[in-house]
């Protein structure tokens, strides 16, 4: 059931932009101060609304990258081709600006409040963002739950949150699908069933599985995990496409 906090009305509020930093060549991290933030669960998102002087508005959803324990709210936004909201957030927005948002939203793709068993996270591209919040939460609570992350990106430069992927009880496998730097020790191909079998928690351990990434990635991974014997009800997915939210 939904936490009670989600029942309240979600009002638009103004956040102050504390900083905009370069996460990857195409992604920026927006650090926000939100007055009276109601708190969030790791994995939730916010809706951001932009308003032009003539009253035109555009809104999109962005996953929260910071853990609930952080004193600020971080969003990581990837610039999409012809994405009027993502272009503004990654190229125009700067510290001191105000940004209208509301949230937190979504109570399903979240770190379970009462998880006992292991958790498997599988990310493609900027699909890793909600997992940054989960991993931060895991560290902040000194959780003893075993977590494995399998994270696929195009190149090393495209990796998001590189300083936040490790911690006690967390084991991370990276795979790069295009260019591999000299001395790269991770994997070097697209995620496939063989990789899932070798680098994710076995179905016998009944992990809770979170999959986030582009549609084709999520389809491949979710089908692969089913074929390895994971229970459908243990697999939670969140998808975005090139057309899913410019």
């Amino acid at each position: 059931m939904a936490p009670a906090a989600l029942r309240r009305r979600l009002n638009w509020q103004l956040a102050e932009v504390l900083s905009v930093t370069t996460e990857t060549p195409t992604a920026r991290r927006l650090r926000l101060a939100v007055h009276d933030w109601a708190g969030h669960a790791a994995g939730q998102h916010v809706d951001v609304r932009l308003t032009a002087p003539d009253g035109y508005t555009a809104q999109r959803s962005y996953s929260i990258a910071s853990p609930p324990q952080a004193p600020h709210l971080d969003l990581v936004v990837e610039r999409l081709e012809n994405g009027e909201v993502s272009e503004y957030l990654t190229e125009e927005l700067r510290s001191g600006d105000l940004l209208e948002l509301r949230g937190p939203i979504g109570g399903y793709f979240v770190w379970p409040a009462t998880a006992a068993g292991p958790v498997q996270l599988i990310a493609g591209g900027s699909g890793v963002v909600p997992f940054l919040s989960m991993l931060g939460h895991h560290r902040a609570t000194r959780s003893e739950i075993q977590v494995r992350l399998l994270y696929s990106a195009r190149t090393e430069a495209d990796l998001i949150g590189t300083g936040e992927l490790a911690g006690p009880g967390i084991s991370t496998t990276l795979t790069l699908t295009r260019a591999v730097p000299p001395g790269w020790e991770g994997l070097r191909r697209r995620v496939d069933v063989t990789m899932l079998a070798e680098h994710t928690l076995a179905p016998e351990r009944s992990p809770l599985v979170f999959v986030c990434g582009p549609t084709a990635f999520v389809e491949t991974v979710a089908a692969g995990m089913l074929s390895l014997g994971h229970d459908q009800s243990r697999i939670k997915t969140e998808r975005f496409g090139a057309t899913g939210g410019p």
């Binding site: 549609t215 979710a222 995990m225 998808r239 057309t243 899913g244």
Partner: peptide, 10 residues
């Protein structure tokens, strides 16, 4: 475009 969104495996 025709985005796909769903909460679990297909």
């Amino acid at each position: 475009g025709f985005p796909v969104l769903s909460a679990g495996p297909t």
